[in-house]
Simulated scan of single mutants.
Amino acid sequence: MPDNKYTLITGASSGLGKEFAIQCARKGMNIILIALPGSRLQSVAESLELEYHIHVKVFEFDLSDSDILKQQLQIITRNHDINFLINNAGIGGTSSITHTSLERIDDIIMLNVRGTVLLTHLLIPHLLKHPQSYIMNIASMAAFTPIAYKTVYPASKAFISSFFLGLKEELAGTGLSVSVIYPGPIMTNSHTSRRIISQGLKGKMGLLSTPDIAHIALKGTLAGHPVIIPGLMNKINHVLMQLLPLSFRMRIVSREVKKEIPYSLSV
Rank of each mutant, 00 (worst) to 15 (best):
E256F: 11
G206R: 02
I22M: 13
I68P: 04
I86V: 15
V44F: 08
G203S: 05
L63F: 01
S95H: 10
A158H: 06
S14M: 13
G166S: 03
D65Y: 06
A214T: 12
N88Y: 12
N112Y: 08
I160W: 02
V239C: 08
S254M: 08
M110K: 15
I186D: 00
Y6M: 08
L244A: 08
N79K: 15
R40N: 15
N79D: 15
L128W: 00
R195S: 14
I261A: 10
M205F: 11
N83Q: 06
L218V: 14
L50M: 04
K150A: 15
N79T: 15
G15F: 07
D107I: 08
H225T: 11
K129G: 11
T221Q: 01
N237I: 01
S177R: 02
D62M: 03
L8E: 07
E19Q: 10
S39N: 12
N237M: 08
P183W: 01
E169H: 09
R40A: 14
K18F: 13
V113A: 02
E256M: 11
P154V: 05
L16I: 15
L85E: 11
G93T: 07
E19W: 07
S162P: 10
P211L: 07
I124K: 02
R104W: 14
L246A: 12
K27I: 12
A21E: 09
G92R: 01
V117E: 05
K18I: 14
T192G: 03
F59H: 12
G17T: 05
K204D: 02
M187S: 06
L123K: 01
G220N: 06
S264D: 14
D62N: 14
A214W: 07
G115F: 01
S179N: 07
L41W: 04
S39Y: 09
K18M: 14
A143I: 13
L119N: 10
Q71V: 08
N83L: 09
I91F: 01
N189G: 09
H80Q: 11
F144P: 11
R104V: 11
V180Y: 05
E49A: 13
I22S: 08
E46Y: 03
V56Q: 01
R194A: 15
P131I: 03
H126E: 13
C24Q: 10
G231F: 07
L111S: 09
D67V: 01
F61W: 02
T145R: 00
S133T: 07
Y149Q: 05
K219M: 15
I82Y: 04
P131S: 06
C24Y: 12
E49R: 13
G90D: 06
S179D: 10
P211T: 03
D65K: 13
A214Q: 04
R249L: 09
S66W: 04
Q42E: 14
V113N: 01
M1F: 06
T145Y: 00
D106W: 02
L36D: 05
T151P: 07
H126D: 14
S179K: 04
G92I: 08
K157P: 15
Q42G: 09
A214G: 11
I31S: 05
M233S: 13
S156E: 03
G206K: 04
N87E: 08
T151L: 11
E103C: 02
P211N: 00
L218Y: 04
V253W: 03
